[in-house]
Design a protein around this nucleic acid. Structure first.
Lengths: 357, 357
DNA sequence: TTGTAGGCGTTATCAC
DNA sequence: GTGATAACGCCTACAA
């Protein structure tokens, strides 16, 4: 078992001082050709690599990004991570992942754990419970400690930081307009409860599109699913709710669902009720994941560009970290700087497949 | 901007020494009631938390686990991460995630980056390219540095470490037997190329089940998909291959596919060819993900228990880390210890849904 | 009861 | 050209 070698060990072996070794390895020309050669050869032989932890302590930055998300077994979130990891790696950062599991307390614990020196900044999406409670003190506390945050997708006005979102509103508008153009007369919306900002915006888009076409937005055609309680037989409950909804509104000929699962389930229920897709009823979902691609019929969706969101978020965060860096070198940082926070809005696009005409 | 406070700052403010503060905060009774009170109150007020990096440097352990997987936008892998994170968190560890993207060099780079002090041990699944090259020196090098590795799912005999796998062989046997019991006479196998151990084992299970029932394993009924090249229109290629396969073997009445995607695609193609499922052709997949649950008809699968694998892997790794810990405290560690490495095999089970009778 | 000193691994500054 | 020293933040054996 050959443990990693340290500067000190090299120094002892070669009978020079630690600082000489350090300089030689960094190619400083303070050191003679000879010693440099000797030291570098020895270091290579023993595969010397500086210890990241020691560097972090010295430089007071870890070169790692903390990702805090509600759930990882989820196409959208994992896609975002992939985007973050891609950019992070490219720019010399690592990513450490924490899962809130949609819980307020887990979100806080995770944050505090990582904020104690483990990471330089956060990229996160807020848990449902936090959104419900509307308690954002932990985010602000973190920011006040000088740790920057970039929020994505589930963001909130109450926290001052960089944000990356998709254009949920216009995405919905596009989807619903498509249904209208395709001659749907009774377009239903299947959405979540309003406290998730994303759901609210998508609902607004739905209403806007209808109104633009002078169609009355009948509240009976809106089904709000309460997914805050994560029950065992969630899927069954969902199916039943949708079935009841379809039965009491049997003129529905178009459905816009705010996520894949709702859309796919709606298709399933519709088929069960003897309706064919897209002839009798057309369906559009939001988020372009595996389900959309492989459902039968395949699902027309509003694509959410998760990977791009991740990439943008990572660039935003790293840019800010490096800005802070050079700032603090040059002048004293204003104690309460009116930072200009950036909000990147990613355009959505409609991917047409078989569930619409 | 109130940066995190340090022991030194507290000491200066309260006009005591750093060690007094340290002791007071850890509740040492060397320190007087009075000072302890005062210091603890002050620390609480300023929300003092020890710096993780400093602790890591001092203790020579980071309390973080490195996860290295080929891909994250993938139901199975993300499920495993969830399991690892769950246990890690519970036992006081963080997880740092690296993606190899199925590439040998990215796997190495990521490993080396993390092995330089950032993590205490690895949990990983080998990339396809590495399996193809059969070059495992980086794993052995890491282990020789005293960094333990736990491999899961895609493991390899050439590396001596703890492993967690599912019982791929028996999983296949179960699936194929089910098809046989359900009266399928011509059972096809859709699998990957052999270099992925997992694919090979599943193929062996298929053959074994047939032979047990004295059925000739016709190699024409085995379709091997070459997914090493990740082409753009991968899906289309897959569909075409399967279609051609079905057409040249038009007596197929049962299909066992080594993953969800192949199974779902097979169903799609079958339907396209006018076959109904499960009446004309029955299908079973491997891995129980979203697709299986939500496909129509829903897919009978061999469940892979990703979360459980993650949990077991995390426990295995942490156990070993803590064993090393107490070991090295007590006596000098044998330089080449005949460690007994553990291989946990997780049983699979057949989840019956609509794609079989 | 409190403080000093040393060390974890590294780099930067300054002295020789 | 080389080395000693200090510092990053923490802990602890030992000294006072």
């Amino acid at each position: 078992m050959r443990k990693k070698i340290t500067l000190k060990q090299i120094a002892r072996e070669l009978d020079v001082s630690v600082s000489t070794v350090s300089k030689a390895l960094s190619g400083s020309k303070e050191i003679s050709e000879d010693t440099t050669q000797k030291i570098q050869a020895f270091a290579k032989l023993y595969n010397y690599r500086p210890n990241n932890i020691a560097l972090s302590l010295k430089n007071r930055k870890t070169k790692t990004i903390g990702i805090l998300i509600p759930e990882i077994v989820h196409h959208f979130f994992s896609t975002v991570i992939r985007g973050i990891e891609l950019i992070a790696n490219r720019r010399g950062y690592n990513v450490i992942v924490g899962l809130s599991n949609e819980s307020f307390s887990k979100e806080i614990i995770n944050m505090e754990m990582l904020a104690n020196g483990s990471i330089d900044g956060f990229i996160l999406s807020i848990s449902k419970e936090t959104l419900l409670k509307q308690d954002y003190h932990h985010f602000n506390a973190t920011i006040n400690q000088g740790i920057p945050i970039v929020m994505f997708d589930r963001v909130v006005n109450e926290v001052n930081c960089d944000k990356v979102i998709v254009d949920d509103f216009n995405g919905s508008v596009k989807a619903v307009k498509k249904l209208i153009e395709n001659n749907c007369k009774n377009i239903a919306l299947i959405t979540t409860m309003d406290y998730v900002s994303v759901g609210r915006l998508r609902t607004q888009g739905y209403i806007e599109a209808l109104e633009e076409h002078k169609i009355f937005a009948d509240s009976n055609l809106i089904l709000k699913i309460d997914d805050s309680l994560d029950v065992e037989n969630h899927l069954e409950v969902l199916e039943n709710e949708i079935e009841r909804f379809f039965k009491t509104n049997n003129t529905i000929d178009g459905v816009f669902a705010v996520n894949e699962l709702y859309a796919v389930t709606a298709m399933k229920v519709a088929r069960k009720l003897g309706l064919s897709i897209p002839e009798d009823i057309q369906v559009i979902g939001f988020t372009d994941g595996v389900l959309s691609k492989h459902a039968t019929p395949s699902l027309t969706t509003v694509s959410q560009h998760g990977q791009k969101m991740g990439e943008q978020a990572a660039n935003l965060l790293i840019d800010r970290l490096e800005a802070i860096d050079s700032e603090s070198d040059q002048y004293i940082v204003n104690d309460n700087p009116k930072h200009d926070f950036i909000k990147i809005v990613i355009e959505t696009e409609l991917i047409e497949r078989e569930s619409t005409k």
